[in-house]
Amino acid sequence: MSTELMDALLKLVEEKGIGKEVIIEAVEAALISAYKRNYNQAQNVRVDFNPEIGSMRVFARKDVVDNVFDPRLEISVPQAREINPNYQSGDIIEIEVTPKEFGRIAAQTAKQVVTQRVREAERGVIYNEYIDREEDIMTGTVQRQDSKFIYVHLGKIEALLPLSEQMPSEHYKPHDRIKVFITKVEKTTKGPQIYVSRTHPGLLKRLFELEVPEIYDGTVEVKSVAREAGDRSKISVHSENADLDPVGSCVGPKGQRVQAVVNELKGEKIDIVRWSNDPVEFVANALSPSQVLEVQVNEEEKATTVIVPDHQLSLAIGKKGQNARLAAKLTGWKIDIKSQSDAEKLGMYKADENAPLFDLLSDEIE
């Protein structure tokens, strides 16, 4: 085999990040195919390919038998013993059958097979690399778009950002750099296919991991995320360290940390609330920025009735019910909000002038 072909094969190994053994296996498969096709041979053959010196030898593998029925696949014991007197019936013998002109034919035939194997191996390398990034965040560059997708280049492959996963408040132009959340990596006949999102709640969580060291190192844990992409989100956080304020950690000095997340999401409002395993406290916190007078819990139906001051009712419910809806998603509890006056009329609540309102353990970033 020519040194030029060997150099080309080694270059493929370096450029594509493919194991040398994959290339060698592809070459051997190509040589076997070339031999059988060009020399009209059907016997079982093996190719001995030495990549160090670029040599190749073809061996026909035959069963040693007492009675030969197919000379292409079998050899008699006497014939085998002419080669080596130690052969017995049932052994397998290898006879070199390398044609004189095989090198030239092999080089021509091997190219197509090797190219195909390299392409398959390269797809495998890319798939293995990105399957580990599923549910992770990556920075990509907008390439182009059509009626269904925006195509985002992630370095080695283009990812698909479906229309349903695009933020309604954003407009993407070619060469824009955006952070995306990888939702799915799958194998297809055309190679790996990667789907990404700008609306997934996981994007918000990963962005906070990038900006808040305490979340990245596990000191602060993101317990839940509720998001209406491009408009408003809520995120609950918790720390086992009683001396650490998880909400303050996420907000950062002068709001710098959370503001970086807001900027990446093009102004999406974010409420950061303190998580609690007590549904009364958690639901009250989740309805931030509204004040809460009382939370009544129905464990069986996993539902709550929240009583708020009359002047806080619209704030608690939010525009088109958004605040209550996000709070319900964040906590996993059904939330029915009633004003103080309505609750008193129904006998559900009795005002206590000395009872303090729930402390607002949250921060809202506009």
Results as ranks from 00 to 15, higher is better:
Lys187Asp: 09
Asn241Leu: 11
Tyr172Glu: 02
Arg227Trp: 07
Lys345Glu: 15
Ala159Arg: 03
Ala242His: 10
Lys100Ile: 10
Ile365Arg: 04
Ala60Phe: 02
Thr98Lys: 14
Glu301Asp: 13
Ser147Asp: 15
Ser276Gly: 06
Lys111Ser: 11
Val114Asn: 07
Ser362Gly: 09
Ser2Tyr: 09
Ala121Gly: 14
Asp48Phe: 01
Glu264Ser: 09
Pro309Val: 11
Asp359Lys: 14
Leu210Trp: 05
Arg232Glu: 00
Arg61Lys: 09
Asp136Glu: 15
Asp176Ala: 05
Thr183Ile: 12
Ala242Arg: 08
Glu74His: 08
Ile317Glu: 04
Ala226His: 08
Ile307Glu: 06
Ala29Leu: 06
Lys234Ala: 05
Tyr39Gln: 02
Arg133Ile: 01
Glu96Gln: 11
Asn86Lys: 13
Ile235Asp: 00
Val47Met: 04
Thr304Tyr: 12
Gly255Tyr: 00
Ala328Trp: 04
Thr109Glu: 07
Leu326Ser: 10
Val225Ser: 03
Pro201Lys: 06
Ile337Ser: 06
Lys190Trp: 03
Ser339Phe: 05
Phe69Asn: 12
Ile24Gln: 00
Gly318Tyr: 09
Lys20Ser: 15
Ile92Leu: 13
Lys190Gly: 12
Val118Gly: 08
Gln143Val: 14
Glu228Arg: 05
Leu361Thr: 11
Asp7Cys: 07
Val113Thr: 11
Ile75Leu: 02
Val273Trp: 00
Gln259Cys: 09
Tyr87Asn: 04
Lys338Gly: 04
Glu300Phe: 08
Ala260Ser: 15
Ile32Lys: 10
Thr3Met: 10
Ala242Gln: 09
Ser2Phe: 08
Ser233Tyr: 06
Leu10Gly: 10
Ser249Gly: 07
Val97Pro: 03
Lys266Asp: 01
Ala26Gln: 03
Ala80Asn: 01
Glu129Ala: 10
Asn241Gly: 05
Leu9Glu: 01
Lys329Trp: 00
Asp359Cys: 05
Asp217Thr: 10
Leu160Val: 09
Pro99His: 07
Phe59Leu: 14
Gln312Leu: 02
Pro356Lys: 13
Gly318Val: 03
Met167Ala: 14
Pro192Phe: 01
Ala8Tyr: 13
Lys156Ser: 13
Pro85Cys: 08
Leu160Glu: 14
Asn323Trp: 02
Gly218Cys: 10
Pro279Phe: 12
Tyr151Val: 09
Ile337Trp: 03
Glu101Asn: 15
Ala42Ser: 14
Tyr87Leu: 10
Thr331Val: 08
Leu10Val: 10
Met1Ala: 08
Glu101Phe: 00
Ser224Phe: 01
Val47Tyr: 08
Gly202Tyr: 15
Ile337Glu: 09
Ser55Gln: 10
Asp146Gly: 05
Glu122Met: 05
Ser147Cys: 05
Lys334Trp: 02
Ile178Thr: 14
Ser76Pro: 00
Ser236His: 06
Phe69Pro: 00
Arg257Trp: 12
Ser249Cys: 14
Ile32Val: 15
Ala327Val: 05
Val273Tyr: 00
Ile24Leu: 04
Arg123Gln: 13
Val212Ile: 15
Ile24Gly: 02
Val237Phe: 02
Val113Leu: 03
Thr305Gly: 03
Ile24Asn: 01
Gln193Met: 13
Ile95Pro: 00
Glu214Leu: 01
Thr109Tyr: 11
